[in-house]
Computed example of a mutant assay.
Amino acid sequence: MASNSIKLYLLLILALVRCSKAELGELKETSMTIYFQDQYGGPNATVAQILPENPDGHLSFKKFGAIFCTDDLVTEGFDVSSTQVARAQGVYITSALDGSNTHVLVSIVFNNGEFKGSTLEVQGASAQFERVREVAVVGGTGKFRFARGYVTFETIHINSAANLAVIQCNITVLHY
């Protein structure tokens, strides 16, 4: 009797695994380039320093323990007026004593185009003063279900007068 119940149990597990795979479909690779429009000051700022508070309003990215919240516009092209595809919402924490690394926790929330309603979850250490920074994609939803991969960030334009930085984000992910 024990032998039959073990066989039945194994068959049930096999059926569940088979059904789960059938729903997910084939593993896909998606690569794209998008642009974070990082408004770091002024009345329309999309980045705010949470701790420590700076009375002068300037952001102190090098200060160990500094915490920032962001809700950047994400566009299809370099120009801020190009088509919006997402918002980059999350936090950055300066996590290295010397200020060289931030810990990034960002959700790229797609609100337009092919991936509307989907998200990518980006997390990891970012060498913030390097020209190109690489951070892991640790998950996703919608069309990016079970995503894993990486993003590279490169600040390609800074307009100090407008308090605007444009960050090119190259994404490569595997997903179902």
Rank of each mutant, 00 (worst) to 15 (best):
Ala165Phe: 07
Glu26Leu: 14
Thr30Asn: 02
Arg87Ile: 06
Cys19Met: 14
Val122Arg: 00
Gly41Gln: 08
Asp98Trp: 06
His175Ile: 10
Gly149Val: 13
Ala2Ile: 10
Gly42Lys: 14
Leu11Pro: 06
Asn54Glu: 15
Asn170Asp: 08
Gly140His: 01
Asn159Asp: 15
Pro55Thr: 15
Leu11Val: 08
Ile108Asp: 00
Val151Lys: 00
Phe129Asp: 04
Leu11Met: 11
Asn101Asp: 13
Gln49Met: 08
Leu14Asp: 13
Ile13Met: 12
Val104His: 00
Ile108Val: 14
Leu24Ile: 10
Asp72Ile: 02
Gly139Met: 05
Tyr150Gly: 06
Asp98Ser: 12
Thr83Asn: 07
Leu59Cys: 06
Asn163Tyr: 08
Thr141Leu: 04
Glu76Asp: 11
Ser126Glu: 08
Val137Gln: 04
Thr46Cys: 06
Cys19Glu: 14
Ser3Tyr: 09
Phe64Tyr: 14
Val106Tyr: 00
Asn170Gly: 01
Thr172Ala: 12
Pro55Phe: 14
Thr155Asn: 05
Arg18Thr: 13
His103Val: 09
Arg87Leu: 10
Ser107Lys: 00
Asn101Glu: 09
Ala162Arg: 13
Gly117Lys: 03
Lys7Phe: 03
Val91Gly: 02
Ser5Trp: 04
Glu76Thr: 01
Ile108Asn: 01
Lys21Ile: 14
Thr94Ile: 11
Leu73Lys: 10
Val135Arg: 02
Ile50Tyr: 09
Phe36Cys: 06
Val109Pro: 01
Gly140Ala: 04
Thr102Ile: 04
Lys143Glu: 10
Ala86Gly: 04
Glu154Tyr: 03
Lys28Asp: 10
Met32Pro: 00
Gly41Glu: 08
Leu164Trp: 03
Val74Gln: 01
Glu154Pro: 02
Val106Trp: 00
Lys62Leu: 05
Lys63Phe: 09
Phe36Leu: 11
Phe36Asp: 06
Leu24Gly: 13
Val166His: 00
Gly99Ala: 03
Leu120Ile: 13
Leu164Ala: 06
Phe115Lys: 02
Asn101Leu: 11
Phe153Asp: 00
Ile171Phe: 09
Leu73Cys: 11
Lys21Leu: 15
Ile158Leu: 03
His157Met: 13
Glu53Trp: 13
Gly140Lys: 00
Val135Ala: 06
Arg87Thr: 06
Phe64Ser: 07
Thr102Ala: 07
Gln37Tyr: 03
Ala88Phe: 05
Ile13Ala: 15
Gly140Ile: 00
Ala147Leu: 12
Leu14Gln: 14
Gln128Thr: 08
Met1Trp: 12
Ala22Gly: 07
Met1His: 14
Asn159Val: 06
Arg18Ala: 11
Phe64Asn: 04
Pro52Met: 06
Tyr176Gln: 09
Lys28Cys: 15
Ile6Tyr: 07
Asn170Trp: 02
Val122Gly: 00
Gly139Phe: 03
Glu76Pro: 03
Arg133Trp: 04
Gly149Arg: 11
Ser100Thr: 15
Ala161Asn: 14
Lys7His: 08
Asn159Met: 05
Val166Trp: 00
Ser60Glu: 14
Gly142Ser: 01
Tyr40Met: 12
Ser31Arg: 15
Leu51Asp: 11
Leu11Glu: 15
